[in-house]
């Protein structure tokens, strides 16, 4: 049966194409094209990421330049001329007269940067520990995996808050705001490496018994060379899936921490900080200060998550 399934792909005799051509004719791209969910969520993610990257060019105002702010513009409703100045803002302004659309663009930069960096940190840490645990085995494996188990029993947001709190205690006051973003990245990353480690360890256990690893051992390759050159490339596809889903979780974790006031400082507001600021005005009628950042966060997290789910299905041949 398996051989017939291999045959179906008929890859062997396919004419050789350029790398790009190969991608566009691959099963992967074919599945992408056939999935509306994947296309829409990819489009939303791409749009938001692009908007965040190009924020200085797109944003009509620089919300962090006090010179451009006019307190008279405070609490302007969306797309309505301000009663005093006559200025119009697409998504309205907050209490200090900052353009909500611009703050969202800049906030998304912080959110995405923290999310990507935290996932990268968690990924490198988790993949390395998972590789070592799976390949070396013995008490090292037991140690790594028990630490992972213990960490999993705490909600990751608590772990992040703990790390954040400890780090804050060691940071001199004048550097706190500067350091906050980096502490945030480490805190979220450290609370998220377990998943990577578990999956990579499992995949490594499978791969290390395959004959190609034995062949490398016999040649005299050392442990690190076998782990990094032979096993790592073969365990990367589940890592990619987890990284995508983790990105959504990391963005939400960052927003949660910032909402609770232990994350990004008001001088560098992320989407979470904006939501915290906005919720204070919800019941006084200025709904837009909360609603637009919240909707952006929802769209971002949801589409990254959907993309991750699709990726998991697409890369797992057993689910096809």
């Amino acid at each position: 049966m398996t051989d017939e399934l291999v045959d179906i792909k008929g890859r062997a005799q396919a004419p050789r194409r350029s790398r790009l051509g190969e991608f566009f004719s691959s099963d992967f791209f074919y599945m992408f094209r056939r999935s509306p969910v994947a296309i829409i969520s990819f489009a939303v993610v791409a749009l938001l990421v692009l908007a965040a990257l190009l924020a200085p060019l797109i944003a009509p105002y620089d919300p962090f330049n006090p010179a451009s702010l006019n307190l008279m513009n405070g609490f302007t409703p969306p797309s309505t001329p301000n009663a005093f100045t006559g200025d119009t803002f697409l998504l309205g302004t907050d209490d200090q007269g900052r353009d909500v659309f611009s703050t969202i663009l800049y906030g998304m930069r912080i959110s995405l940067f923290v999310g990507f960096a935290a996932v990268l940190f968690a990924m490198v840490l988790g993949v390395l520990l998972g590789l070592i645990a799976g390949y070396v085995g013995g008490w090292i494996e037991t140690l790594i995996m028990r630490i992972a188990d213990i960490q999993l029993t705490f909600p990751s947001i608590l772990v992040a808050m703990l790390i954040f709190g400890v780090a804050k205690g060691f940071t001199p006051v004048e550097y706190r705001d500067q350091m906050a973003i980096w502490v945030l990245i480490v805190a979220i990353g450290l609370s998220d490496w377990v998943q990577f480690a578990r999956v990579v360890r499992g995949a490594t256990l499978v791969e290390k018994n395959k004959e190609y690893v034995q062949a490398a051992k016999m040649i005299g390759r050392t442990g690190p060379a076998i782990m990094l050159k032979h096993i790592l490339p073969n365990v990367l596809s589940p890592v990619l899936v987890i990284a995508t889903i983790s990105l959504a979780l990391a963005i939400i974790a960052e927003a949660t921490l910032s909402f609770l006031g232990v994350g990004a400082p008001p001088t560098q507001p992320s989407l979470g900080t904006l939501i915290r600021i906005g919720q204070g005005f919800l019941f006084s009628g200025e709904w837009w200060i909360l609603l637009f950042p919240a909707a952006t966060l929802l769209a971002l997290a949801l589409s990254v998550n959907l993309l991750g789910d699709w990726l998991r299905d697409a890369l797992n041949p057993r689910l096809r």
């Binding site: 017939e4 291999v6 045959d7 179906i8 792909k9 008929g10 062997a12 005799q13």
Partner: peptide, 13 residues
């Protein structure tokens, strides 16, 4: 040994 050259083609080709 007598041998048959090549191998069985895949179904796709």
């Amino acid at each position: 040994l007598r041998q048959i050259p090549g191998s069985m083609p895949r179904l796709g080709s």
